[in-house]
Simulated scan of single mutants.
Amino acid sequence: MYQPLPEGIRSARADNRNGLDIHYLEAGDADAPVLLLLHGFPELSYSWRKVMLPLAEAGYRVIAPDQRGYGFTTGWDGDYDGDLGACRMFNLATDMVGLLHALKTGPVRAVVGHDFGSPVAAHCALIRPDLFRAAVLMSAPYGGPPPLRRRVPASDIHADLAALPRPRKHYQRYYASRAAAADMLHAPQGLQAFFRAYYHVKSADWPENRPFELGGWRAAELAKMPTYYIMDRDRDMAETVAPHMPSDEEVEACRWLPGEEMAVYARAFRQTGFQCALNWYRCMTDPALSPEMRAFAGARIAVPATFIAGAQDWGIHQVPGALKAMAETATADWRGTHLIEGAGHWVQQEQPAETVRLLLDFLKGL
């Protein structure tokens, strides 16, 4: 079990019949309507610890699993040359269908996904609206399923980034590389220091996070984002975030992620490594690895949906046009976009009270 864990949050396991023995955290009455909370990268079920009890006290059974490749969940392949297809989006959604069947929950009131959990939640709602009756997407906008015929870009964005006067590379391209997992696991500054810098630089605590809408999917526009998204070509992620390591005074002042909680992430990823989690990026960035999703071309999420993110989160603009597409073309029953001041990328940890308020407002509207 993760420690420290707030009293009232339980830890359990379930066989999802899709190859995983899923570890999950749970709070609330077993007979209450279910909320399924899906974490992102590099996160854990533990990332929901600040919102689970308030949601349970509001009358919900709250379930937060460690997804494939994360935490105490087992049964996944962590080899770069292993079973890559298991990390494709359709199978990640199947993981959650299997978990709900194992727990005999019936339909869930809402599936809530943060960061990479956001597209998983979106696909759950798209594929099984009978089981996932509403969707809350957080920090990563969902622009819809892939088209039936892949669009051929006018130029290679990765070549264009590398050709800039200050050569750059996209962080997802880096995460798909063979070197990325070892770079982070064996970061020269140490794993916990790497996590501290990474979480700091993507939070509202880093004053340079002042996001704005980009002009398009072009190298010169993408390069306006911080280097944790559009990296310097010759730096890995550990090197990228190291210059932004917060001071001892800043770490001490960080109430939303004190040292003992930060250590939970370092311990977990030291045990599991990063590779299976990074295989999600490999599947997402290569359309050939998710051909089944083309069957949903043009389909909209039919159930009620909303978006919550930090106002200081560059993630909301990292795919130009996705925020607008999510509300106008990717969903059929849009319930609003909500940006929380004083929060960066880790919105449910940085501003849990406001996150809970927005979640409950959405749920009441159902």
Rank of each mutant, 00 (worst) to 15 (best):
K364A: 15
A322S: 14
V136Q: 09
R151G: 12
D333N: 15
M138L: 14
E350Y: 00
D286K: 02
I230E: 07
Y171M: 12
A182G: 09
A295G: 14
K224V: 00
W280I: 01
G75A: 08
A220L: 06
W76N: 08
I316R: 07
P65Y: 04
K50H: 15
H123P: 00
V319T: 15
L5I: 03
I9L: 01
G98H: 06
L289E: 02
L44Q: 06
I340N: 05
E354N: 02
A266H: 05
A64V: 02
Y171W: 12
G75H: 13
A182T: 11
R300W: 01
R270T: 15
W256H: 04
P246N: 06
L25Q: 07
H317R: 00
A32N: 04
A353K: 11
H101Y: 05
A163M: 03
A110I: 10
G117W: 12
H317L: 00
G273F: 08
Y229N: 12
V112Q: 14
H101C: 01
R150G: 09
M237I: 07
A182Q: 14
M52Y: 03
A30C: 01
E261A: 06
D95V: 04
V264W: 06
P6T: 00
G75W: 11
A343N: 04
A163T: 03
R270F: 05
G216H: 02
P54E: 06
V201G: 05
G40S: 09
T227I: 03
P129K: 13
G273S: 08
P188Q: 10
R267D: 14
L37M: 15
D66S: 07
K169D: 01
D66C: 03
Y198N: 14
Q275E: 15
L323W: 10
E249W: 01
K224M: 09
